[in-house]
Amino acid sequence: MDLKEFKEVWKKEQNELISRIDINEKKIGELEFEKSKNEFDKYINTSIMGRNFALIYFMISILLASQLFNDELYSIPALIGGFAMLFSFFQHLPLKKPNYSLMTIIELQRTINSFRIHTLKYSKFDTGIVILWLLSIIPVLLKLSFKISILSNFYSLIIYSLIGVIAIIIIIKYLPFDVYKKWDLELKNAEKQLNEVRKFEAE
């Protein structure tokens, strides 16, 4: 084999090697995109489902309040809890499942980042609204189901208030928005991995 033939063979092998490297890099990028997409998809679906349930909880509150409409001591708190849920529904109304097939890595990064900001912004509201809703409908349910008038009896009201305060303290102490923090950490890692792939592709 003369020098010219050797150079051609070497060049051909080099081009094939570069091509294989490009294909592998592309596959790595696609796998990382898919992994991050699946991670994000899990949380956006959960959030959208939670938002839709807030609307159902609102309707439950309206239904329960209507059954005790003439008893303002029970119906007004139930309405307040219900409208708090409606407020939560509208807070999360902008959440939409993206079309991943049209997204680039950068666009997925931006979408994840926007979701993280949204989730952290409203996490405290969500927890407070859930607590308020539960406290507002439990007396109504007890009155309708078991004829127990917690709010109509001073001593029962004191006991219920104490139990409510203890429950709130326990929830805040032992469940301090851990779910949201976990989501934020995992999505932050997904963003970081996507950024590494994007930098790698840019080199």
Rank of each mutant, 00 (worst) to 15 (best):
G82C: 10
H92Y: 15
E107T: 07
K199H: 07
K188G: 11
I131F: 09
K37V: 00
Y160C: 05
F200C: 04
I60S: 05
N99R: 10
N45F: 10
L120E: 05
F58D: 02
V179F: 15
Q14V: 10
F33Y: 13
I80D: 01
N113H: 13
F83N: 00
P139C: 14
V130G: 01
F83D: 00
I163E: 02
G128P: 03
K121F: 11
I76L: 09
N99V: 02
K173A: 14
E201K: 15
N189P: 00
D2I: 01
F89M: 07
F146R: 11
S114M: 02
M85T: 03
L142R: 07
I112T: 07
K121H: 08
S152H: 13
K97L: 12
D2R: 05
I148D: 13
L141N: 02
S47Q: 12
G50C: 09
Y74I: 06
H118I: 00
N52L: 06
I80T: 05
W183Q: 14
I169Q: 06
L108C: 05
I137G: 11
E186Y: 06
L93V: 14
D126S: 14
Y100F: 15
K192C: 01
E39R: 13
L64T: 03
N113Q: 14
Y155Q: 14
L120M: 11
I150M: 07
E203S: 13
S161K: 01
V179Y: 15
M49V: 06
I172S: 03
T104A: 08
T111S: 07
M49P: 00
E32I: 10
G50H: 09
F89C: 05
M85C: 09
E203W: 06
K37W: 13
I170Q: 04
G164A: 15
E13A: 14
H92E: 13
I80Y: 01
K188I: 01
N38W: 02
I56C: 06
F154A: 15
K182V: 05
K37A: 07
F154I: 12
E25P: 00
S145K: 06
D71L: 13
E32K: 09
